[in-house]
Each structure stands twice: as structure tokens, then as C-alpha cells.
Design a protein around this nucleic acid. Structure first.
Lengths: 157, 157
DNA sequence: TTATGTGCAAACTGTTTGCGCGAAG
DNA sequence: CTTCGCGCAAACAGTTTGCACATAA
């Protein structure tokens, strides 16, 4: 019953495979360096700094610059999510399918919001207040695109 | 009826005054530079980069280093909130009393979460999906400190 | 074979720090 | 008067970029 609780080493290959497919689907080349970086990200499901990754790939002959370029590419293709850390560093992790529901208080429409948007906030809530945010069970209130446009016709700047 | 809609120049002095009191309350000195920086933050209720502030104070003889040191101090004393931008810069604004409710899915307890935690996320949702997040009307789901501790006794790592 | 990725080294942005002078309390 | 903040200039961390060579497709 607790068979699929193990998010450890075995799954990593699967995740890497999926990421590589995604990469090919975007017409990007699969190189040794990129594979290596994806392996690292898959292994450390948590956050890894670009610099962290660079440090670990250096031994394997993958250059810092390559790491930065690859991570940027992965982020652009949606393969990884990224997040800014205090101090200016950027943390990366494989993108998951997690998403959050935005609920428009005007038209009641529900909007799917991208997964990585709340990573940073979730992290800080956990650290500062011990609250473990669960995006999949949450929906947040606000105003959607069109209702926002509509309301700005009748009111304040 | 629309008298207090104006969040423009007039209020700024009040906000600065409040910030300065707060500063004194923390036993910190009030200098020309600090006053100037607070004025800037009060004037631009949105985000201002440390670098932005530095650029604008340079003319007034307030040095870059002073700006960084002051902003760091303000953040430490809770007078301003800060947020990391892509590219490594940090955006600052006067702290408000805005907060969000965290709802524990286990014990149903509601927890007040600090305001600035969501600045980043709100910004990205607005940009990426046109969704204007309203923290004051939202409560998000998750697990609180104690329930999290309790559940980790019976399950995964 | 050819377009694309890589290593290298140098530049760049944003931020931090040690020092002696100057001002706030 | 004494403690703390400031300007200055130099160092630092993280990241980006132009170029010639290497390699995936």
C-alpha cells in the first residue's frame, strides 16, 4: 500500500527520459551535458542552484557556461521550473504537473495557474510559519483578465 | 465618497512618518539618507529595485552603499518587504498589513500568513495569466505545523 | 555535412565590505 | 562626546556573452 511512496533513485531515470523526450519534442538536441544536468535535477527533487549543478558537473567535464545555458533552455521549454533565492541565485527543479486554481471573484470562472508560480511562496510559508502549502487542494481568489479589463473601464486609474 | 481613493503624493508623508517612528522604535538612527530612501519607497507604492533607489538618491548625495545598507536594515526591522526578481535584483516596498489565510486541511485551523510572501507569485500570475490575485479574499489549503509533525510520525521519511 | 551546442575566458550586473571621516543622539 | 552611519573604492557572487572548435542529427 505504500509502494509508490518512494520518490528515490529509481524514478530518476524515468523522469530524465520524460524530460529528454520533451526536449526532442521541442526540436532541441540531446547532448551528454544536458543529459547529465537533467539527471542531477531528477536526483535532487528539491531545489538545486545553477551554481550547485555547475559544481557537480564540473567533474564530468561539463562547463559552467553550459550549465547556465542548458538550465535557461530547460526553463524556456517548460522542462524545469526556476525560482529566485535571496542573494541572487536561481534554484531549478524538474517541472511537475502540479497546478493551482485561480477563482475569479467577478465571473466565478476558474483558471489553471502554472505550477512554479507558488514555489517561492510555499517555501517561505513553510520556513516562516510552518505551513505546508498544497497547491492541488487550493484555489485562490482574484480577478481574471477579462473582468479586470471590464472593471477598469468604470473606475480608478 | 471617493476621497480616500487617492494613494498619491499626499499620503507619502504619512507613510514616511510612520516608517520613521518604527525606525526609532527599533533604536535605529534617523538620517537624511534613510529619510530620503523611505520617501522614494513611499512615493512608488509598487516595486523599486535597490538599484532603482540608488540611481535616484545618487543626485541627492546618498551613496549606493548606503542605499543597500539601509534597505537591508529596513527589511530586517520589517519596515519594508522585499522580493527577488529574475536577474538577481531585489525589489523593495513599504510593508503593508496585508495578509493571507492559510487553512489547515487536517485540523481546520486558520493561520495568518505574512504579506510579502505572495508578492512574487501575485506578480507572476498577473503577468503570465492575467490573473490579479487578491490575498485578502483568499485562503489557501495546506497543513499546519503541528499537524505536519503529527502526520510525519506515522508515514514517509 | 551542417546547424547547433560547448569550452574558454573575459565582461557585466547586483550586492557586500573594511576603512576613516562625519553626524545623530 | 560617543556611538553609529556614511562615502569611497575595491572585492565578490552569480550570470552572460563572443568566439573557435566539436558533435548530434
Amino acid at each position: 500500500m505504500n509502494r509508490h511512496v518512494e520518490h528515490h533513485a529509481e524514478d530518476a531515470d524515468v523522469l530524465v527520459g520524460r524530460a529528454i523526450q520533451e526536449l526532442r519534442a521541442h526540436g532541441e538536441r540531446v547532448t551528454a551535458g544536458r543529459r547529465r544536468i537533467l539527471q542531477l535535477l531528477a536526483a535532487h527533487a528539491e531545489h538545486l542552484t545553477a551554481d550547485d549543478v555547475a559544481a557537480r558537473t564540473d567533474d564530468d567535464g561539463v562547463h559552467r557556461a553550459t550549465v547556465y545555458r542548458s538550465l535557461e533552455l530547460f526553463a524556456a521549454t517548460g522542462i524545469v521550473a526556476h525560482r529566485q533565492l535571496p542573494g541572487g541565485a536561481t534554484a531549478y527543479h524538474l517541472a511537475t504537473s502540479t497546478h493551482l486554481h485561480g477563482h475569479c471573484v467577478v465571473c466565478q470562472k476558474v483558471i489553471a495557474l502554472p505550477s512554479d508560480v507558488f514555489d517561492d511562496a510555499a517555501d517561505r510559508m513553510l520556513r516562516q510559519r510552518g505551513f505546508a502549502f498544497d497547491p492541488n487542494r487550493s484555489s485562490i481568489m482574484g480577478t481574471c483578465d477579462s473582468c479586470r479589463a471590464a472593471s477598469s473601464l468604470s473606475a480608478e486609474e
